[in-house]
Amino acid sequence: MSGADLQLDSFEELAMPLFNQLYNLAHWLTHNREEAEDLVQETYAKALKGFSSFKSGTNFRAWMYRILRNTFLSSRTGLKATMTVPLDAENDGPEIAVEQDTPDTLLCERRNRELLQSAIDELPVYFREVLLLCEVEEMSYQEISETLSVPIGTVMSRLSRARKALRDRLRPQPQVGTITNAMEKGANHGL
């Protein structure tokens, strides 16, 4: 077997177990099956081409995710996503937990996965990716830091704000809105 085949063998062994996870993240980022497939395909092509430059002993998973993320960010969809949603300052103080865990409790009681999925979907891309890397991919802060090329402190603050943003989106709408909607419905009936 040639040296190139050996390299392909080890790339396959390392890269293919990540296929489902990479596709899942790609779909979350792009919101589109075709774009997710293009993104994953380009990621594998770039990774295979640059595999000789991968330093043995370093984190291959973080390396693959970093390629996927960079490819996404330089794509049209990625640029649009990052341009339309400005990122707040990174050095927010620690988040104080809410006293009444209304959104969490509500979520747990209802177990409404679709509601949670659409709430994650609505998050800005910087929040969505850090949340998914932590909760779904179960990456450590260090791994996320390597994947996103940001300091661990930034990972922590971004994660904290992502969770807060998710809770805010899951918070029940205020009563005023409900009343207003009801009034509007009534007015429509009248028309």
């Binding site: 979350w28 497939e37 979520l107 177990r111 994650i120 909760e135 179960e138 969770r163």
Partner: peptide, 16 residues
């Protein structure tokens, strides 16, 4: 913790 588990389940959403 329940929230984390819910996100983990909801996050595994797309299959190639």
């Amino acid at each position: 913790v329940q929230m984390k588990r819910a996100i983990q389940l909801a996050g595994k959403r797309f299959t190639p």
